[in-house]
Design a protein around this nucleic acid. Sequence first.
DNA 1: TTGACAACCTAATTCTATTCGGTTACTTGA
DNA 2: TCAAGTAACCGAATAGAATTAGGTTGTCAA
Lengths: 214, 214
Amino acid sequence: MPNDPLVYGKKGENLPTDTRTRVIRAATRVFAEHGYQKATIAEISRLAGLSEAGIYEYFQGKEDLMLTIPNVWVTEAIEALEEHLFGIKGALNKLRKFLYWYVRYIEREPLVAKVVFLHLKGNRSFLDTPVYANVKTFYGQLLSIFEEGKKSGEFRQDLNPYVARSIFLGTIEHIVIRWLLKDMSYSLFDNLEATFDQIATGLAPAGDDTARST
Amino acid sequence: MPNDPLVYGKKGENLPTDTRTRVIRAATRVFAEHGYQKATIAEISRLAGLSEAGIYEYFQGKEDLMLTIPNVWVTEAIEALEEHLFGIKGALNKLRKFLYWYVRYIEREPLVAKVVFLHLKGNRSFLDTPVYANVKTFYGQLLSIFEEGKKSGEFRQDLNPYVARSIFLGTIEHIVIRWLLKDMSYSLFDNLEATFDQIATGLAPAGDDTARST
DNA sequence: TTGACAACCTAATTCTATTCGGTTACTTGA
DNA sequence: TCAAGTAACCGAATAGAATTAGGTTGTCAA
């Protein structure tokens, strides 16, 4: 069942007629399931419905193939994020929206998330990839939010935006990785509000309790 | 230079006479430098000063070898942590000590840290390893600290210890991984106090600013 | 002094990524 | 319309690395 070729896509929506796309989808499944080392070109090619040699027409090799997986996902993320933050007033509200939107975005593509969070993070060559430039743009949004909140007085004046970002991103990554390693057996949204609440408390100016949901 | 066999250890301290230990040290260096995929048994065996086949006398294979690397490091961590927290009064003080001690512990063994944080985290089989049970013990300490702080009133009453732990660990991991990927080119302690300060603020009871260093 | 066994080794073997050298079918310019 | 070019693909090598087979050597206890 997990190995039925993608060419026979279920209901007409998973029918990537384009070979390159088909290979990427197959690779996503195989890398997500087995990890880089145990994934084989043979299995990917079988799943994509072309010969092993055929893969090398589209990708330079196994690593290049894996590095290509997040391209679409990341590019679309940047557009979608902008759209979702548009019109939201206040840094704290933007931050909350960022969190919920991002978590849902990850939840929707768990296979891509597995590749990105479990196998690409911690891979030096990922940093030199063109898609990583997009990741930086993406993370840059967070910095803007923290700076805005500082300027507006919503956040404490001595806030270090880089520190705030480390905490925010680190926490999300930790939660996501745990969820992926536990095979997505529970909801990614469990305790999310409490987590946001606690981080937000650390951002607020002294004596200001508006962030607390108490 | 990086390939001089470990058998000729520098000044008398790096002279693991025990073959198994020698292999583990060699493997740590090679895995840390090249990552799992590009690390070769050939290089490890050369560095350890025995044949490739010899490695299989001590380890079941390449993966088993990598999974063995953190054993000593983690076991010693648990003992040392206990020792370092002993006699410290107050949950917040314990938490700060935990942070500083842990960061220094990581800084001292950057090669092991590389293997653990970049290659083992995100590896499902690591979860089934006996050493992972120790990791859980280690993380359990943090839970106790959060619970103690809640009980004593140092931390907010509605604190969720698991949430607090996610934030704390996630942040550390994020910082460490960034540092490792940037080839340890700066100090791991940069901004550490600001980071602790901000997390601590999120833990404090409403209206209590004692955690702030302002 | 001999038999068992631990610690190693060299030389296969096997598994996979990658490359080579086509074939096929479609496009395009004369 | 046809021939040359080319994009997409394939089966069969090749090459590189992990793992296994089948010893050899040296030590030690009965």
